[in-house]
Design a protein around this nucleic acid. Sequence first.
DNA 1: CACTATCTGAGGTACGTACCTCATGGCAAG
DNA 2: CTTGCCATGAGGTACGTACCTCAGATAGTG
Lengths: 340, 340
Amino acid sequence: MRATTKDLAIAAGVSLATVDRVLNGRPGVKQDTVDRVNEAIQKLSFSRNIVAANLARGKFYTFLFLLPVSGDQFLDELLARIDEANLAYSADMIRIEVMEIPDGDPHRIARLLGSLDPGRIDGVAIMAPETPQVRDAKTRLAERGIATVNFISGQTTGSQTDFVGTDNRAAGATAGRLMGRFSQQMPGFVLVIAESMQSQDSLERRLGFDTVINAEYPLLSVLPSLETYGDPERTERIIRSSFANHPAITGVYILSSEARAPLEVVTRLTDLAKPIIIAHERTPFTETALLSVKIDALITQDTGHLVRSALRVLRARVDGREVLASQEKIRIEILLKENL
Amino acid sequence: MRATTKDLAIAAGVSLATVDRVLNGRPGVKQDTVDRVNEAIQKLSFSRNIVAANLARGKFYTFLFLLPVSGDQFLDELLARIDEANLAYSADMIRIEVMEIPDGDPHRIARLLGSLDPGRIDGVAIMAPETPQVRDAKTRLAERGIATVNFISGQTTGSQTDFVGTDNRAAGATAGRLMGRFSQQMPGFVLVIAESMQSQDSLERRLGFDTVINAEYPLLSVLPSLETYGDPERTERIIRSSFANHPAITGVYILSSEARAPLEVVTRLTDLAKPIIIAHERTPFTETALLSVKIDALITQDTGHLVRSALRVLRARVDGREVLASQEKIRIEILLKENL
DNA sequence: CACTATCTGAGGTACGTACCTCATGGCAAG
DNA sequence: CTTGCCATGAGGTACGTACCTCAGATAGTG
């Protein structure tokens, strides 16, 4: 079966106490003895029974999700999945907390991260752009023994923090490919609607989208991004004016995670010649829209997987284990009416 | 924190021994007392710490995957993911075994299922059509206390066995939708290539595919399914003759999980006017084909999720827990070059 | 009322690990 | 040789649950 500490002790010819000292890095063991124990670990391919260890420690993993203040349905979905996970993983001694931060305020995030108690919080999943302040705060967290992952947002090349989420450029490119293929070889304009182009995530999506369209679908021209700033009135106004200026809009790409307002306006303006509409994220609203063919395709990431993956990564880090990269890759999903 | 059996005992005003008797259904407790304990369970929302219970029991879950004999790359993928899971879940006291059965032989499957030792095997994930014999064998397994799930294959409405996998009809419909949308409003024939149409899975895929095409893409007509029987020579011959008889083949749908041979033939025959090609399952081969634009889209299911989901379901059944349906739904994935 | 049969409590051991204390051995410096 | 430190062993308790035994209590029977 599995080797236990007792087996180790026998194999190394030492006592349980010494095995314990070696395993837990306690002082007072000769290098010689340490080596003997390590050899035994190799030989028996011993690995600590983490479950029993946690029982003994009375340990409860407490992980924190740091999310922007709610509002859109995508975040609601996420919260629901976090709730589910909290329930499902309580058997695995994992407790989840959520804090919401007014989005985009790096100072607040950094301050909050700085104030976390390593005795209480074992790890944090952070959904926020990785600004220098935030990155610094993460480094200090790591020093204090709190694990972090960048969650959904904040993927940066060269960051040493694990990232759980999808590659936004690839997501944009996927949207671009679908837009290109769904447009039936007709020339036309493509409208891109975002909540804001301030964020790295939006920029990346747009970049990926443009790359594909420009390289492979020369009949389509992508218009400058419209920014709604989450304001319904503004949304209405700018979309209306775009349609007025460009009669031949054959495609609409809504790249923000809240598709509701833009979609409603677009639907109202185009009930005759419906353009191809591609949006992001699965929410009750977008789901309905997809089923009623108001949207042609959705680019999504499975929120349940996101949450569970973040938890697995955090737990692995806390336990000092490696993560299985292949298992933690979050897929960019394409949803049509048929595979909803 | 979490209520323990000790808390329960105090709350119910009984001893630990009685709590234990109630929890584990041991005899010798008055109904009255049983009720008191159950009330306490409700009140404290107690749930057994399964981890500690397994420690105490010295329990190691042993799950068996019953797969068709290997051969195609999809099964290789699956085996690789099972291996990974075996490693990753050994910390959770889960051990995985694999047995391969010459596919389609219900007698052998039934016999094998009948010979399983409930003392050694806790649950089985079965990838095989649910024939009457197999269904009977599963019922008997359940009686002997071995959990089962139908894995990837064998979804049946009204089966009381859990199913882990995707809905093949929806998968076919998804393929149909893509085929329709990718075909640029040009009339044409669609070739459907299967290894065999004997299996329920193939029939369902074809059915879903036809439903969408017939209802919404009247310009396309779907040809009768070609069956390769896994024979390269036959594959070459029947595809070649199809192309000879129907010059205007604009789409090819390969619905078997092994796409290699059909794709190679089709590619060879159509290097000038490439039809839209849609295939199933992600393998090293189909991945490469997608990247080099020999295939236009892949309909897949994430093998890692499949394996982990089956394990979670089996474990939940063994523990007598309910499964979180939302977490166990396997998505029908659409892969393009961009979201690979 | 005595006698059963049934229930219940008290207490123990075990699982594999963590963490603690205390005793004892050796060895080196004084 | 003594003092004192370092290395190690022995043994304990705990985590939350399972499973066991035995004694004692309570109920029901004749």
